[in-house]
Design a protein around this nucleic acid. Sequence first.
DNA 1: ATGCACACGTTAATATCTTAACATTTTTTT
DNA 2: AAAAAAATGTTAAGATATTAACGTGTGCAT
Lengths: 211, 211
Amino acid sequence: MKETGKISKAVIKRLPRYRRYLEDLMKKGVDRISSNELSNLIGYTASQIRQDLNNFGGFGQQGYGYNVKALHAEISKILGLDKDYKMIIVGCGNLGQALANYTHYYKAGFIVCGMFDINPRLVGLRINDIEVMDYSLLDEYLEAHPIDIGIICTNKGSAQEVADKLVAGKVKGIWNFATMDLTVGEDVALENVHLSDSLQSLAYHINHRED
Amino acid sequence: MKETGKISKAVIKRLPRYRRYLEDLMKKGVDRISSNELSNLIGYTASQIRQDLNNFGGFGQQGYGYNVKALHAEISKILGLDKDYKMIIVGCGNLGQALANYTHYYKAGFIVCGMFDINPRLVGLRINDIEVMDYSLLDEYLEAHPIDIGIICTNKGSAQEVADKLVAGKVKGIWNFATMDLTVGEDVALENVHLSDSLQSLAYHINHRED
DNA sequence: ATGCACACGTTAATATCTTAACATTTTTTT
DNA sequence: AAAAAAATGTTAAGATATTAACGTGTGCAT
């Protein structure tokens, strides 16, 4: 693989999408594909596809195109999907519970190891075979179990405190669903899913459809 | 308000974030704020903030700054949050159910009017006071009830079919949670929440934290 | 009342991202 | 076997987006 200099975030955001289409193609038994054909499927220009992929190395072959299976494997590796990730969920309301199931079903490699909540009614519950533990046990749990990803599904009032605990507990990344921007150290990856923002964007576009 | 030419999507994505911070400021009783102070809070450059806001009109005043309450109201209006949106949810698994509650609690103005599922075990259930109807009734429901937003929480195999029904039923926008890119007409707004893509991005960033 | 500092709106410059063009290599066809 | 077609990697051009610079109007202090 080519020396990865500084890859822009826009490129990274596109990689999972490439991967999805390649997966579909694999399932259909397609062996090879050109940037032009991919362009027709995905909707990015062929030029952009070649440009994107070339950030990481020359995966294709002139006159031939790309080997679907090999490219899928390369992208998976770039994204780090050849590894496993241990995750915990903090905040076990509807969304937290949904994610506990979601990740279980859809994403091998992302393993929910524990769940935490402050609500006594939820503590002790088993969701998708994972026990909900009391929030006060979070610190010591993190000390005893190395965790890669912390998922925050609390209300916004608690989110930063939870993030601080996760960072102190040496998680490598945080997946944040709280309606709030978190401050974490440089060495912790942060991915926000602001559902509320997303819905508001949708509202805007609904009102400006003729533009 | 200024004539809205063609506003870039990046700007729109930032508006809800501005709005959130302004809401916090309102709650704290702050009356006025400068682009510099906002910059320190939000993390965008002051220049970008002025640039963004100026796309829609001159909301500030030289030597003074912006009136927090007025700016909040303006942004709300731009986003279309001065209106109500009737929504239905198709696919009532964990995620669909979570959203039924989520939107209820957190977003006045976004009203879940109906829920649909193909699973007989879910049909008839009441979630957050909304009855889950059989999926086969979707078409006639949409004919009888004008709906603004359709939320797709099905698996990817059904997502395009559902989208087609929603479009035929004259929804104005689709909020898509299925792991799939949908094709809809030009006159329908589409907002994707690809959780799986998001998690994969996070994985990438976890593995490239020193860059 | 006058001057100074503040801070917007706007124009200009810079940086980034996307698209197009092309030279080269491989495959396919005649 | 030779020529034509296909399709990459890469360089160049064009388009967007971000940041900086600046002129001007407003408020506050002396």
